[in-house]
């Protein structure tokens, strides 16, 4: 095994291009588990923690551009107002020690269906900025996940950043675990109201081969709420219930040690119903204040 430690983004991309079989490591929260238990023996580890460009976030063209190496702890403390859904998701991840190291970039690179950041990124219409020596491109996060732990990242590419438009409306994030901390999601749900566009964004996690949106639920909500955005009227209870049901229909879960498929479907319907109710209540209150 070799260990490469580029200090600039250009060097990192060069190394990636030269060593397509290298495994990139940042917080190490996935890679080191694989190595410690003998499941991962890459010929080369490409350490990205010295690449300064990855460790910062900025506001760029109205978007938050979140460097792929920014740990969750900083998302919580520095971006709670700008990226509330992602910050809520970040707070549920692992332990404080994990949140001090783990990154959204790493979550995306692993592309596990159980990755906690994904539902929040989906709901917020995030874009993934990836780069190689060939250049930089942006991938809508919806198109990023291509299979179980597979993504649209090409072998010579690295994740540079995630770009997220700060919300025009409330966001929610809920996650089911059978313990009150340090738990992998049995099912997770992200929700973002986009009143500026009359759109409701969703993301579901741990309930399909990839993180995915609940498109039918989004369309239903957009239609049901179309007359309410302006008036900020009360959300009919039946709308929330139906929204939950439609979110659940988007899931294609399996039975595994963490939960049954039937429970995941049920839990998604409850989480989605509650999340929409909370978000709408917040949207209504925001007007009054």
């Amino acid at each position: 095994m070799r260990f490469l430690q580029p200090t600039t983004w250009a060097e990192a991309l060069e190394a990636r291009a030269t060593h397509p079989d290298a495994v990139a490591i940042a917080g190490g929260t996935d890679v080191m588990v694989g190595i410690n238990f003998g499941r991962l023996r890459p010929p080369l580890l490409l350490d990205l923690t010295r690449v300064g460009e990855l460790q910062e976030w900025s506001v760029d063209g109205g978007d938050v551009r979140l460097g792929a190496g920014v740990p969750y702890a900083r998302v919580i403390t520095e971006l709670g107002d700008r990226l509330p859904g992602l910050a809520m998701a970040s707070r549920t991840i692992g332990s404080p020690q994990i949140r001090n190291r783990g990154t959204v970039g790493g979550n995306l690179a692993t592309a596990s269906p159980a990755g906690d950041a994904h539902p929040a990124l989906l709901a917020a219409d995030a874009e993934v900025e990836v780069a190689s020596v060939r250049g930089t491109r942006r991938i809508p996060v919806t198109d990023f996940y291509t299979g179980v732990k597979r993504s649209a990242l090409a072998p010579d590419e690295l994740i540079a950043a995630v770009r997220i438009r700060p919300p025009a409306g409330p966001q929610q994030y809920s996650k089911i675990g059978t313990r009150n901390a340090m738990v992998i999601a049995v099912a997770a749900f992200g929700l973002a109201l986009h009143p500026d566009r009359g759109v409701v964004g969703t993301g579901i996690g741990s309930a399909a081969p990839t993180p995915r949106r609940a498109t039918a639920a989004e369309e239903f909500a957009a239609e049901e709420l179309s007359g309410l955005w302006e008036s900020r009227g009360e959300l009919p209870a039946a709308t929330a219930v139906r929204f939950g049901e439609l979110v659940a229909t988007a899931a294609a879960p399996i039975d595994d040690v963490r939960g049954t498929a039937a429970y995941r479907v049920h839990a998604l319907s409850v989480m989605a119903r509650r999340a929409l109710t909370w978000a709408w209540a917040e949207y209504r209150t925001a007007k009054e204040s």
């Binding site: 430690q5 917080g27 190490g28 580890l45 020690q97 190291r101």
Partner: peptide, 10 residues
Amino acid sequence: VCSCLVAAGQ
């Protein structure tokens, strides 16, 4: 941090 998840070189 969890030192078990820090690669030595890091």
